[in-house]
Amino acid sequence: MLVQTEKSPPEGTNNYIKCLPTEILLMILEIFRPTSHRKSEYKSVLALASVCQVWREAVLNTPSFWTYIRLHPPNPPREADIPHEFEIDTPPVFNSSYPAQLILQLERTKSAPLEIRWRVKGEPHPQLRDIIHSLAPLHRWRSLQLAFVQSRQVYIECGSGEEVYMGIEPELPGQIIGTFENLREMSLVGDGKHLSHLCNLVETTALKLETLLLGERTASLTRKELSNTCRRVSRFLAPTHT
């Protein structure tokens, strides 16, 4: 004789997944937890949250599913590339409402350590510094991938009518306040002409930093400013010049 417990599904149904305790369900879903900033991993999280209400609540309320943060607007995909199954009320990573999506994702991380990827190109979003200070303070950053990408603006040369490309140097959004007390990994790529304040914060507060990766142009500008940090980290990579 089958004894029906409080968690047992009604007779004639096979919906056993809804009867799993949340802890067990999260152990199963853990294999889909993002481990990088790839869009495909974020889309997998959105897909999990679309399965049913139980899964949705479990995923949305678990900070570790949301801690890979991009501090830059994503490139919008072609309309044909947007799957209909991701059209839930959570703004996806490619939503044009970037600040709202960023705020929502950061709120879901609660107080968990953050993995930050920041691709600085042109002028930063005007709300970005306030969002960082209020929802992503520097002491929560566990890793930082910072890349400066020079954008190009087209001018028409007077007289000849030829197109002339002018490089625009990217900038960080003013001076960011805080300490990198829990930063473990950092990579800097690009020109980095506006990195003095950031380098000073790393040099004086990132005492737990273990890995430092510098691009060729960034290395030439930051080796002196990060001299103590370069000696302190256990893994330091920068281009060598012969």
Rank of each mutant, 00 (worst) to 15 (best):
M1Q: 14
L2A: 15
V3Y: 10
Q4K: 13
T5Y: 10
E6D: 14
E6P: 03
S8P: 02
S8C: 09
E11C: 10
G12D: 07
T13H: 06
N14D: 13
I17F: 07
P21S: 03
E23Q: 11
R33P: 03
R33A: 12
S40H: 09
K43C: 14
K43G: 08
L46W: 02
V51S: 01
C52N: 15
Q53R: 11
V54S: 12
V54K: 08
W55P: 00
R56K: 11
E57Q: 11
L60K: 03
P63L: 06
P63A: 01
Y68G: 00
R70P: 01
R70C: 05
H72R: 08
P73Y: 06
R78K: 13
D81W: 07
D81L: 08
I82G: 03
H84M: 14
E87D: 13
E87M: 15
E87G: 05
D89G: 05
P91S: 07
P92K: 00
V93H: 08
Y98H: 06
Q101Y: 09
I103S: 04
Q105R: 11
L106H: 01
R108A: 00
A112V: 05
L114N: 02
R117M: 11
V120W: 01
Q127S: 13
I132W: 00
L135E: 00
L138P: 01
H139K: 03
S143K: 01
L146N: 00
A147W: 03
F148W: 02
Q153L: 07
Q153F: 04
V154S: 14
I156E: 10
Y165C: 14
M166A: 12
E171R: 15
G174R: 04
Q175M: 15
G178S: 10
F180D: 00
N182Q: 06
N182G: 09
L183W: 00
R184M: 15
E185A: 09
M186T: 08
S187W: 03
D191L: 09
H194K: 14
H194V: 10
E203T: 04
L209F: 03
E210S: 12
L212P: 01
L214C: 02
T218Q: 11
S220G: 15
L226N: 01
S227K: 15
T229H: 01
C230Q: 07
V233T: 02
R235G: 07
R235P: 02
L237V: 13
L237M: 13
H241A: 10
